[in-house]
Amino acid sequence: MSKQKKMTLSKKQNLTGWVFLLPGALLIFIMSFVPMFRALLLSFKSGVGAKMAWSGISNYVRMFQDTVFVQSVKNTFFYLIIQVPVMLILALILASILNNKDLKFKGLFRTMIFLPCATSLVAYAIIFRSLFANNGLINLLLVNLGILDQPYAFLTHTTSARIVIIIALLWRWTGYNMVFYLSGLQNIEYSVYEAAKIDGASAVQSFFKITVPLLKPTILLTAIMSTNGTLQLFDESVNLTNGGPANTSITMSHYIYDMSFKYVPNFGYAAAMSFLILVLVAVLAFLQMKVGDKRD
């Protein structure tokens, strides 16, 4: 009783705040952090199905000897290195075009470019698969226009299968990143551009000297998010190409799924591979922050 009387108003308010935070924090802890910790423990075990035994770091050694997993790492980095820069540059260009005050039907264009983000990952992957099928729309167009003599099997050739995945990803995610840039551009005074125009700066110059430097924090954010998303790529690999031809388009997450639910399950090994993705994401995000963020 005497203790409570000593409490100041701010202390009381702080306590109330913590009480409100507690349920959410507890749920996140139980639903997210506990499973993550359990998965870490699991990654040091090995065995078939539920029969697991401690095996030290054998799972982590094993994944570097696993040719299919190494192939999946290479594939994922192929997507990352090509798709992320192309997508971010495209998004940046689109955002600057749509930020123009004199442009008509801006809302319509914005909606159209953002709309792909509202589609389900599985649905759009299946649509791209049928578009690029042997008797799909793309082949139909190419043959009828006389560009090809007979349909090209896009999804049974390594390079074209990977390109189709990249095109699909660009279609799905460019608008999403563009919205971040558009909102970032709202914070840049339009008068800055007008001043530059009066000083004789061209559109290209003001893009590189004003837009890009001032948007740097947003670019950093989207780069980290896209890297994270690409390293965890799953739906496109499963639904669009099914990892084929001959595992040359399979992603890390797809292989982890196969290892857990399609093959004789080895959850310890699958958990270890998942932690490699976590490490890769963390390292790449750290590097990007070091390179991109010059604020002290």
């Binding site: 031809p245 001959a246 595992n247 080895n266």
Partner: peptide
Amino acid sequence: ATAITNYINGSDLATELQTAEQTVNFNMGQ
């Protein structure tokens, strides 16, 4: 299936079968 795909695309049959067996043995040796 991986071996057949590679073989159709011009790979050597014996090498592909060798790789396939190695992959299966690797998966069984957990």
